[in-house]
């Protein structure tokens, strides 16, 4: 089976989907000749031309708003927001429009649109090239939010997202683009939205994570495994809709739940997971539902020492697992 980097899986999936379905267009800043600032769309412009691979002005609200209209009139846009940090000018279009059009038109109109955006820190990107923005969007009914962690999932989930009839936000951790490799078959497989994966079976502590943190959780599980702590890692893959069943099954088995996310802790996505576990699995819990997440600063600081202080690491996760296991 061929091995691919995370970004190669994404780029090749965009190309194969565009070959399969001529209603798919790609639009965003620098996505054309340059192939995107991370090269996620490299080669698409040469193959599909100006009409289907559109370099837009620096107008994020337009990128999303025009994608909504294009979707209403028969296209299947895949919009790129250059960095997730730059998505906020489009917030109104995503939350007030894309998420609501099906509901408010009583199923008259839908918006089959995918918005891809690189997110996350640990790459010296500072406050405006490092943010995790998922919690702003997972709150919103009408949206789907996907955060893959492996090249295999990136391909299968991107296919599902593009083929979905509703708006999907597809967040790609930029640190994983070239540092994560994995087996990716050339078949036309899909990974369904809304299904988590157990990436490390275990019996004593459940660790729930997604994106880069799903990798760090696996590293942490290996470390504490040396101390005899058996960890089950759940990689959520899709944040909305959440695979509540897989989460609860694991917690009911282990009785202990640690949620890991890179975003700052207060009001982050993991807070919702914690609330669901507390509500639905209280009788099975053998310790408090705990979280390891980013500190309460409004962005990831630049200096290396400051960034390292900000970032959740395998060590911090391992410490959290040990504390919970000892509870």
């Amino acid at each position: 089976m061929p091995t691919r980097t995370f970004i190669d899986a994404i780029r090749e999936t965009l190309a194969t989907e565009m070959r399969r379905d001529e209603s798919i267009i790609v639009l965003g800043e620098d996505v054309g000749k340059k192939g995107g600032v991370f090269l996620a769309t490299d080669g698409l412009w040469a193959e599909f031309g100006d009409e289907r691979v559109i370099d837009t002005p620096l107008s994020e609200s337009m990128i999303v708003g025009a994608s909504i209209g294009a979707a209403v009139n028969g296209l299947r846009p895949v919009a790129e927001i250059q960095f997730a940090d730059f998505i906020f000018p489009a917030f109104n279009q995503i939350v007030s429009e894309a998420a609501r059009i099906r509901y408010r038109s009583n199923d008259g109109y839908g918006v089959p649109m995918t918005i891809r955006a690189p997110y996350g820190g640990g790459v010296h990107g500072a406050l405006y090239h490092s943010q995790s923005v998922e919690a702003f969007f997972t709150h919103v009914p009408g949206l789907k939010v996907v955060v893959p962690s492996t090249p295999y999932d990136a391909r299968g989930l991107l296919r599902s997202s593009i083929r979905d009839e509703d708006p999907v936000l597809f967040f790609e951790h930029k640190k994983m683009y070239r540092s994560v490799r994995g087996d990716v078959p050339d078949t036309d497989y899909v990974v369904p939205l809304g299904k988590a994966a157990i990436t490390h079976p275990g019996s004593q502590v459940t660790v729930i994570a997604y994106g880069l943190m799903a990798h760090y959780a696996l590293e942490a599980a290996d470390r504490v495994g040396e101390d005899g702590i058996s960890v089950e890692v759940v990689d959520l893959r899709t944040l909305r809709p959440l695979d509540t069943e897989t989460v609860l099954e694991s917690v009911r088995k282990t009785g202990k739940c640690l949620i890991v996310y890179e975003d700052n802790k207060f009001g982050g996505y993991g807070a919702e997971v914690a609330a669901i576990v507390a509500e639905e699995a209280f009788d099975y819990l053998d310790g408090p539902v705990t979280r390891i997440a980013g500190p309460e600063v409004p962005g990831v600081p630049y200096n290396h020492a400051l960034e390292e202080w900000f970032m959740v690491s395998p060590e911090k996760i391992a410490d959290g697992i040990r504390a919970l296991a000892a509870y």
């Binding site: 337009m62 708003g65 025009a66 028969g74």
Partner: peptide, 10 residues
């Protein structure tokens, strides 16, 4: 307005 522009693009 952006929806109409996107419709025109399509």
């Amino acid at each position: 307005l952006l929806h109409a522009v996107g419709i025109a693009l399509a």
